[in-house]
Design a protein around this nucleic acid. Sequence first.
DNA 1: GCGCAAACTTGACCTGGATCAAACGCCGAC
DNA 2: GTCGGCGTTTGATCCAGGTCAAGTTTGCGC
Lengths: 247, 247
Amino acid sequence: MTGSMAAQPLSLERLRTACSTCGLKELCLPVGLSGQEMDRLDDLIHVRRTAKKGQSIYRAGEPFDALYAVRSGFFKSSILSEDGRDQVTGFYMGGELLGMDGIGTEQHTCDAVALEDSEVCVIPFGRLEDLSRQVPALQSHFHKVMSREIVRDHGVMMLLGSMRAEERLAAFLVNLSQRFVARGYSPSEFYLRMTREEIGSYLGLKLETVSRVFSKFQDEGLISVQQKHVRIIDIPRLKHLVGHRPC
Amino acid sequence: MTGSMAAQPLSLERLRTACSTCGLKELCLPVGLSGQEMDRLDDLIHVRRTAKKGQSIYRAGEPFDALYAVRSGFFKSSILSEDGRDQVTGFYMGGELLGMDGIGTEQHTCDAVALEDSEVCVIPFGRLEDLSRQVPALQSHFHKVMSREIVRDHGVMMLLGSMRAEERLAAFLVNLSQRFVARGYSPSEFYLRMTREEIGSYLGLKLETVSRVFSKFQDEGLISVQQKHVRIIDIPRLKHLVGHRPC
DNA sequence: GCGCAAACTTGACCTGGATCAAACGCCGAC
DNA sequence: GTCGGCGTTTGATCCAGGTCAAGTTTGCGC
């Protein structure tokens, strides 16, 4: 039992970080948990961290001890090769989990950088493993989240390995659109949080090519772009571009 | 207690599939388990399956209910896009785990095809989850294996996204070499189980390019290739090629 | 052991995207 | 408001790797 002096600030903090009151609980770790199980998950997620635009949550080489759920904002993860090239390996938005790359070696293997002012929930990994031994629904869901990360990466490999520039960008836009919808935003109108260079790095293209393809899509009436503001005009046609080489 | 009639064949089968007597236990799921814990893992791995060259262990779309540990042989995993292109997403050898892509959706998302006559241990996933709730060392190791699969995929993304053809093939050979060493084979001399086309698909290159780069490496005295037989002559120089653009 | 198909090598040519270069527009600092 | 710098767009040129085409080697089925 905590003393009365501690009780007040603690409960406020708890309410502020509680999964049970979080708008993203349908997308995040608590998926499929009962109210009581969610309370137990709340017990380990006390801490939130904020990162201003450009700051990182963790960097490659740092010891791993927690996963991070994006509460608000937008992140990229990237690896820096020894000769200075860096490769963006993913973009992360609300409800998505960062840091699973660090479990295997107990060291983070990439950087997680905020692309706008952001907030994450800190999930101590040892305690998550403890709890998931006691709560099968949590264990099962956590395994699914990891597995989906693998499948997502396979999708990127397919994109990088066998698609042309236009297909890559179309696939990227369709993917973003779907993730925005799942979060209650417009599927057809959004702001890109990343630069052309970051998109290019993720898609294996140079920034000039990204820019050119954006312009081409605009000329063809598929989308309208103005800097970071994108409106998708013809989603079906954009989807059709993915996985269909031009004849 | 099992009757005496059943005891004999059962124990033979058990011995045949037992993790505790498997030469790959240092590389596979049992890593870090005590003898007693390994026995419990043995309890769930009764079944082995064989696949002749060209046959698959599972295919995309099939329901997922088990992971497969490669006992002997060699596999590729690949996804087929709707327009018929297929992308090799990985190669798997002894002690490596196949099928983690299926956990997230409870359906396999790629094909696992044997590249030579092979044998796998079938690990029923539900029972693995049950046991890993009881055996923290198993839980922890399984999480690490999944995490490493993610890190491996990030490596491939880096390769596909920002390396030139020569770097890609060098990285591929170095990686194979390291995995062969870990299994007690020669680091410098091995048979490729996959075709030039499969290597190309994995590396985002056409088979002609793979062939040309092999020839170039040979001309430069880095390796000697004759069809599927590869001997690496200068590992340090090959390693140096990876992550260093030509000046 | 023969024949055939699949896998591989090599050459000639072509092209998508990279590279280099220049100008433009947006946004934050003062 | 305006100045400066970063991010972006657009054009001109180049080249790594793709494409197409032949020829060669290998290994498997009969």
